[in-house]
Amino acid sequence: MTEYKLVVVGAGGVGKSALTIQLIQNHFVDEYDPTIEDSYRKQVVIDGETCLLDILDTAGQEEYSAMRDQYMRTGEGFLCVFAINNTKSFEDIHHYREQIKRVKDSEDVPMVLVGNKCDLPSRTVDTKQAQDLARSYGIPFIETSAKTRQGVDDAFYTLVREIRKHKEKMSKDGKKKKKKSKTKCVIM
């Protein structure tokens, strides 16, 4: 069974824990209790493949930012979460993405942009803004509501699919490099 290491990042209060708990335990946590770091595991079937999701729910508070490099190193894919009623959390996505790329030393890291709290009427981040940002990053965008469960499975499952595509691409690139290195030079 394939294991996928997913990391949920975003500013404090955007609903990272609520999304994760909704996926794992099928219930909505409405009281806000700032996370330092929590880890969850769940076995699911995605596109006919049974897999184990190892999900790291991270601290959004700035005082825990020193811990970010460590979990970013171990993560295979990242859910970059903002709240649709919090423009600052949307603007912060850029910083999370840049930090992930720096730590992973790669421009090509599996990510999904997630606009959470889409059940709320007080939207300050337009869907088109988020779609445009995701398009500019070359990553999928999904709106979710941890409260109603809308888009929750889709967000995590899409990230797994992005990781699969990335692994497939990397193995193809690896095979191309191996083929090239088999060419021999004969000096007579």
Rank of each mutant, 00 (worst) to 15 (best):
D154A: 07
D38F: 00
V125T: 09
A130M: 12
V125M: 10
L79F: 03
L133R: 10
G48P: 08
M67T: 01
E62I: 04
M111N: 02
T20Q: 03
V8K: 04
L79E: 01
T20D: 05
K176N: 09
V29A: 08
E107D: 09
D119T: 15
V112D: 03
G174H: 03
I163G: 03
R41M: 10
L120C: 10
C185Q: 15
R161L: 10
K104A: 13
G75Q: 03
E107I: 07
K117W: 14
V81S: 10
K165V: 08
V114D: 01
D47M: 09
K177H: 14
K128G: 04
P110M: 02
A155W: 14
R73D: 03
I93L: 06
E107R: 11
C185K: 15
S17H: 00
D47H: 11
Q61T: 07
A66I: 03
V125N: 11
Q22D: 15
K88D: 15
F28R: 02
H166R: 09
K177E: 10
C80Q: 04
Q99N: 15
K180R: 09
F28S: 02
G48T: 09
D108L: 07
P121E: 12
D38A: 02
D47T: 09
R97P: 02
L23A: 09
V103E: 10
G151D: 05
L56K: 03
F28L: 03
Y96K: 01
T124D: 12
D105I: 14
A146L: 04
R102E: 10
I21G: 15
G77T: 07
V186K: 04
A155Y: 14
D92S: 15
G15W: 02
F156M: 07
Q70T: 09
C51D: 13
V29M: 11
F82V: 15
T87S: 09
V152A: 10
V125A: 10
E62W: 02
F156P: 04
D132K: 07
F28T: 02
Y4D: 08
I139E: 07
K176G: 10
D92E: 15
F28D: 01
R164I: 14
L6D: 02
V7M: 05
M188C: 07
F156K: 00
V14L: 10
D126H: 07
G77I: 12
Y71C: 01
D126I: 06
P110E: 01
N116W: 01
K182I: 13
D57C: 00
P110C: 03
N26M: 09
Q129G: 14
V152Y: 13
Y137R: 12
P140F: 02
D105N: 13
E3N: 14
A83N: 15
D153L: 07
I55Q: 01
I55F: 04
C51T: 10
Y4C: 13
E31T: 10
H94M: 07
Q131P: 11
K42P: 09
K117R: 12
Y64L: 06
V44L: 13
S89V: 04
K117F: 13
I46T: 14
G12L: 04
E63D: 07
I24G: 05
E98P: 12
R73E: 03
H95Q: 12
E3F: 05
T50G: 08
P34K: 02
K178A: 09
R97K: 12
Q22L: 03
F28Q: 01
V125F: 08
I46E: 15
K178M: 07
T2G: 11
S65A: 12
D47S: 10
R164Q: 15
N85D: 07
V14G: 12
L23I: 10
K167V: 06
M111S: 02
V186T: 15
T127H: 06
A130Y: 14
D105P: 07
K178I: 12
Y64V: 00
T124I: 07
L133H: 14
K169F: 13
V114G: 01
C80A: 05
D38Y: 01
L120P: 15
S122P: 08
S106P: 04
L79R: 00
L56H: 00
N26I: 03
V8R: 01
F141G: 06
R135V: 08
Y32I: 02
D108A: 11
P140S: 10
Y4Q: 13
R73Y: 08
I187V: 11
E143I: 04
D119N: 13
S39Q: 04
T20H: 01
Q131D: 06
K5N: 14
T20I: 04
M111K: 02
G15F: 02
K42Q: 14
I139F: 05
Y40E: 00
H27L: 13
Y157R: 12
K175T: 15
G138Y: 04
R135K: 14
T124M: 09
V7S: 09
K172S: 11
Q43E: 13
R68Q: 04
H27Q: 14
E91F: 06
A83P: 14
D30Q: 12
T50S: 10
F156D: 02
M111A: 03
D57H: 00
E162V: 04
L120I: 09
R135F: 04
I46C: 09
E76R: 03
G48V: 06
Y137G: 12
Q43I: 07
I36T: 02
A59V: 00
A11S: 11
T158V: 10
D108S: 09
C51I: 13
S65H: 09
H94S: 12
Q61K: 06
Q43V: 11
H27R: 04
P34Y: 05
K176H: 04
H166W: 11
Y40S: 00
S136I: 06
G115M: 12
G13N: 12
I46P: 13
R135Y: 14
A155C: 10
I55A: 06
R123I: 10
I93W: 15
H94C: 15
D132I: 05
I21N: 15
G115A: 13
K128M: 06
V14I: 12
V152I: 11
P34D: 02
H166M: 10
T124A: 08
S136W: 03
E49A: 10
V81K: 15
I93R: 04
T158N: 05
K178V: 14
K104H: 10
N26Y: 07
V186Y: 14
C185L: 07
V112C: 08
S122W: 06
D132T: 04
V160M: 13
M72Q: 02
I93T: 07
T58M: 00
G77D: 02
T124P: 10
K165Q: 07
G60W: 00
H94Y: 05
E37I: 01
Y64W: 04
V109E: 02
V112Y: 12
Q129L: 07
K42H: 12
Y96I: 15
D30R: 11
T58I: 00
R73L: 06
Q22R: 10
Y157K: 12
G151P: 15
L120Q: 06
V81D: 03
K42N: 10
V103I: 12
P121W: 06
Q25L: 11
T74K: 01
S17I: 01
R97V: 15
V125I: 10
E91R: 14
K180D: 15
L133V: 07
L56R: 01
V9A: 07
I100V: 06
P34I: 03
Y71I: 00
T183K: 12
S145M: 09
D57S: 01
H166A: 10
I100C: 05
D54F: 02
E107F: 04
E162W: 08
I36C: 09
V8Y: 01
G13H: 14
Q131S: 12
E62D: 06
E76Q: 07
G10S: 15
K117M: 14
L159S: 02
S171R: 04
K175A: 14
R97E: 06
L19R: 01
V9D: 02
A134M: 07
T35E: 00
L159Q: 02
V103F: 14
S136A: 13
Y96C: 07
I139M: 05
D30W: 07
D153M: 07
V112S: 01
I139Y: 08
G12E: 15
L19P: 00
Q70Y: 15
Q25T: 13
K175L: 08
V81W: 02
F82Y: 11
K42Y: 08
V8L: 09
Y64A: 00
G12I: 04
D69F: 02
N26E: 14
G151C: 04
V9F: 01
G115N: 04
D33W: 03
F90V: 12
E162I: 10
R135T: 09
S106Y: 13
Y4L: 15
K177V: 04
Q70H: 09
T58N: 00
L52F: 12
F28W: 09
L133P: 11
L79K: 01
